[in-house]
């Protein structure tokens, strides 16, 4: 077991799970915490790594006042036991045998299941072209920054584009903005290629991106979404 900080407010936990049955990229687990008096709380967390024996990586964003995320990013120490149930989910998944080009659009912690797909693509020897559009508030908020830089260089057929919503890096060619038609047109795929689209992040982000993809001509049945909640209107 191990833990590493991804950003000042997000931490990756590496867990060893005995008898783990394996998982598909995009699936999640339910984490259940139990206090000494038996009180429990459960939340879902996406699996960040490609299947790798009994090793499981979760990346948790600290939510202020968050019951479970504050514990997992703060109090929790490497080696402490946690209860896990899963893998869960059979729709928001990508399989290396899939032949179509893929568009991944992630907002904030919504990158986690998409990163599992990027990792599974390489691990599974797939050559299907992948494009990732990753929306973050500021440069410090991007998860897996070094790994994404390296993979964009070495995993052939993987393109990575960032969109900054609050503050862009120095000399960035455009002011901060949200993922919209412009980003999806320039860094996505044309709808005629019929890519599989995976959109993940906070509810409002997912609503906007999925609506825009449909408006651009993507088949709604090929746009798969995962809403991390909870801020839904």
């Amino acid at each position: 077991m191990a833990a590493r900080d991804e950003t000042p407010s997000a931490r990756t936990l590496v867990l060893d799970v005995p008898d783990w049955p394996g998982h598909q990229a995009g699936q999640h687990v339910d984490v259940r915490l139990t206090a000494e008096d038996g009180y429990t709380a459960q939340r879902s967390y996406s699996i960040a790594n490609a299947a790798d024996g009994g090793r499981l990586e979760l990346t948790v964003q600290r939510v202020p006042e968050g019951e479970v995320s504050e514990y997992l990013t703060g109090v929790y120490r490497v080696g402490d036991p946690v209860e896990i149930r899963g893998p869960v989910g059979g729709w928001f998944v990508w399989r290396p045998a899939e032949p179509d080009p893929v568009l991944l659009v992630g907002g904030g912690s919504g990158i986690v299941p998409l990163m599992a797909m990027i990792r599974a693509r390489k691990a599974g020897g797939s050559r299907v072209p992948f494009r990732l559009i990753y929306s973050v508030r500021s440069p410090e908020d991007g998860y897996y920054a070094d790994e994404l830089r390296t993979r964009a260089r070495d995993d052939s057929g993987l393109d990575v584009a960032y969109v900054y919503t609050r503050r862009a890096p120095r000399n960035w060619p455009e002011p901060p903005r949200r993922v919209g038609v412009a980003a999806l047109n320039t860094a996505g795929w044309p709808p005629e290629l019929a890519p599989l689209c995976y959109v993940c992040g906070p509810t409002g982000f997912v609503e906007t991106v999925a609506d825009t993809l449909v408006a651009l001509g993507h088949d709604p049945a090929r746009v798969r979404t995962e809403r991390f909640g909870p801020t839904g209107g």
Partner: peptide, 18 residues
């Protein structure tokens, strides 16, 4: 069992909103 209370109204759907 296993539920927690929210005041928000979260959204769960598998794809875009029709």
């Amino acid at each position: 069992p296993g539920q927690y209370l929210t005041e928000d109204f979260p959204v769960l759907s598998a794809g875009p909103t029709p």
